[in-house]
Design a protein around this nucleic acid. Structure first.
Lengths: 169, 169
DNA sequence: TCAAACTTTCAATAAATATTGAAAGTTTTT
DNA sequence: AAAAACTTTCAATATTTATTGAAAGTTTGA
């Protein structure tokens, strides 16, 4: 396989995965395109490469910037915006986990806190069952939360070394 | 808050989360409904409770069975199918991780293996950059894979004890 | 063997989500 | 100050995904 075809497949695969995890295809593809590019890219180049409209490119670039995965860069003497993608796969993974944690896990934890207030003194079996469920989900969510938090603080090799040690000995 | 309202909110919240992670809303809601129910449920009851059609209920129940999160149960002397949801939150999390791993991560690993064959002997900087990227993604995917595998084998408290110890001392 | 009770399927339809593209906005140059 | 070069916005539209509901299929009991 040659480089051009390889890049194409990488971009497609990344788009497909994104879709399955609730991330829009174009956003994932733009991101993939940036990962495979050694250079920075202009909106024009992205539009061209992915055959998408200016509006779409612009919108998704903005989202990627919001996610902290892409930054604008300026070329000396040029008016046009260029975009640079984070290339470090580990940093990308951390960043995505972090963003999704705050945007999705935190609100859930809040709802669960509320649900803990359901008839707290009831002796009814139904209520107890519900309370146990809420509690268990809350615990699990908290564990995930702490795991992610831990990952943020950890350096790549340090973290995986520790984790893998647990399972290999 | 009373029990009925609490259950309602739990079902809604679970549906919303599902949606954000590429799981269809109804499937997540049916599952949530089963978690909050002490008893088994018939298709009729699910249709009623979530205001959905028979076809929709049936289809998503089948998917949940495929995912291993729901089982059919038969009541003695009754013709109708009843459905029982897995209640153990930890088991649910493991199961979902496992399914998504095989369905989504494994195919990605395969694509990455292919992409490693891109001009393997080239000295070009571009090719080297691409090869490094593919390699890094592959490593990350493998780490995730091994982490999930490890989680499967682990018992709940054992696993979290180990993980949390890493971050707390 | 028939019909009642139930489940499954799937083409049609609806709902949600993503994309376009032209108009409006902004900044820089002349 | 006006035009040129560029970016952003957003209503209209297209695409994708989920849902309906009626028809077909299956199982059980009389």
């Amino acid at each position: 396989m040659n480089l051009v075809e390889g890049k194409r497949q990488f971009v497609q695969a990344w788009g497909a995965i994104g879709t399955q995890w609730g991330i829009n295809k174009t956003m994932a593809q733009i991101h993939a395109l940036m990962m495979v590019s050694t250079d920075v890219l202009s909106t024009e180049e992205i539009m061209e490469e992915l055959s998408i409209s200016r509006g779409n490119a612009n919108m998704n670039l903005r989202d990627l910037i919001d996610w902290g995965l892409v930054t604008k860069v300026f070329k000396h003497g040029e008016r046009r915006d260029y975009f640079q993608g984070e290339k470090d796969v580990w940093k990308i993974a951390k960043q995505v986990a972090k963003i999704r944690k705050t945007r999705e896990l935190d609100p859930v934890l809040k709802v669960l806190e509320e649900l803990k207030k359901v008839e707290p003194n009831s002796k009814s079996e139904d209520v107890k069952h519900f309370q146990k469920l809420v509690n268990d989900v809350h615990k699990l969510a908290n564990n995930v939360d702490r795991l992610i938090e831990g990952v943020f603080k950890a350096e790549e090799s340090w973290f995986w070394d520790k984790i893998l040690k647990i399972f290999t000995k």
